[in-house]
């Protein structure tokens, strides 16, 4: 088992490096000069300044040397200096990541806690009203554009009904807690600041629902399909022939088998939530990685782009490893090596 995890981690490192190489090459082939974007028109018209800027960020080196430099720094835990913020990229990421982690995790939990039971119920009571509700939820979740959903939700629940607070992680009048983890819910709870805890939680409601919708739809649909498949298997008929109660057949026999595809989907979905909350974060003014990624991309901020790529790749690879390991736990046929 340990050997298996070890070898998987080793290949993970290779995968992460390869993905940084790919994104490095892509970023260098797209048009757009980071120097011109970062320096503004005045400075950019002075060739000497441009040259100095390029030298500062190593942009004048040959491509392979630039990449070599990136790798060399990476080994030392140095992700370089952001061209647009002029701060170490690592500091930027430490600032922005917790907001995204908090939002994505809440959204993920929401989509599983709602989607899984909804999918199971829809399958068990096929063609009943709950099945139709589940179908509607998954259809809306999968097809409604995130930015549209975000605006609609804000307009109704904040603008019209005033049930939910506006954009941002906290009210402007709230005092943010001392930074321990950067996750507001945990930091406020640790410090016993329940007023701010409630404020943070309230601010999470709308964006996490918006972010969860797509995943929720997929989870519901996958669970329903997997449950229908499992319920049609011979072993379910055998379980009925044994005289087991319906609840035991559904939860004890069908569900453990139906979980397998849901776990695969859930892993990928969580990684996606972590990496792809750009729309939601933008509409809700959420100071997270999604917005940071967006800004880095439009300013052609090479160090930031490379760092984010490496992190996103690492997240995907790790989540996949977690999925494979939980597979081995859920399904005895998968050999534990």
């Amino acid at each position: 088992m340990i050997r298996y995890v070890g070898s998987r981690l080793l290949t993970s490192v290779v995968m992460v490096l390869l993905s940084t190489l790919v994104i490095f090459l892509i970023a260098n082939t797209v048009p757009g000069d980071p120097a011109l974007v970062a320096m503004g028109d005045m400075a950019a018209s002075d060739p000497a300044q441009v040259k100095a800027f390029r030298a500062e960020y190593g942009l004048d080196l040959p491509l392979w040397e630039q990449y070599g430099l990136f790798l060399q720094r990476l080994v030392h835990g140095d992700l370089g200096i952001s061209i647009s913020s002029r701060r170490p990229v690592l500091d930027d990421i430490v600032d922005y990541a917790p907001a995204t982690l908090e939002l994505a995790t809440i959204a993920f939990i929401l989509s599983i806690v709602v989607g899984l039971p909804l999918g199971v119920l829809a399958a068990v009571r096929r063609d009943s009203w709950i099945d139709h509700v589940a179908r509607a939820v998954s259809l809306i979740g999968v097809s409604a554009p995130t930015f549209w959903l975000a605006f609609i939700m804000l307009a109704i629940f904040y603008g019209q009904l005033d049930w939910a607070p506006g954009p941002g992680r906290l009210d402007p009048v709230s005092f943010p807690p001392d930074r321990i983890t950067g996750l507001l819910l945990i930091d406020t709870a640790l410090q016993g600041d329940w007023a701010t805890f409630h404020d943070a939680a309230a601010h999470l409601v709308l964006p996490s629902i918006v972010l969860a919708m797509a995943t929720l739809g997929l989870v519901t649909r996958t669970t329903r399909a997997a449950m229908l498949e499992a319920l049609s298997q011979d072993y379910v008929r055998v379980a009925r022939a044994k005289g087991l109660r319906r609840r035991v057949i559904v939860n004890g026999h069908a569900l453990p088998n139906a979980l397998l595809p849901v776990v695969t989907l859930g892993g990928l979905a969580y990684a996606n939530l972590l990496a792809g909350a750009v729309m939601t974060e933008t509409v809700f003014s959420w100071p997270g990685l999604g917005r940071y990624t967006f800004r880095s991309a439009v300013t052609v901020d090479f160090p930031a782009i490379m760092a984010i790529t490496a992190i996103v790749a690492a997240v995907f690879v790790l989540v996949n490893l977690a999925v494979d390991l939980s597979y081995a736990m859920l399904d005895p046929r998968v050999t534990k090596r």
Partner: peptide, 15 residues
Amino acid sequence: AMVFQDPMTSLNPVL
């Protein structure tokens, strides 16, 4: 009680 045709699929694989 009933015994079915295909013993390969009649037992729940994860239990």
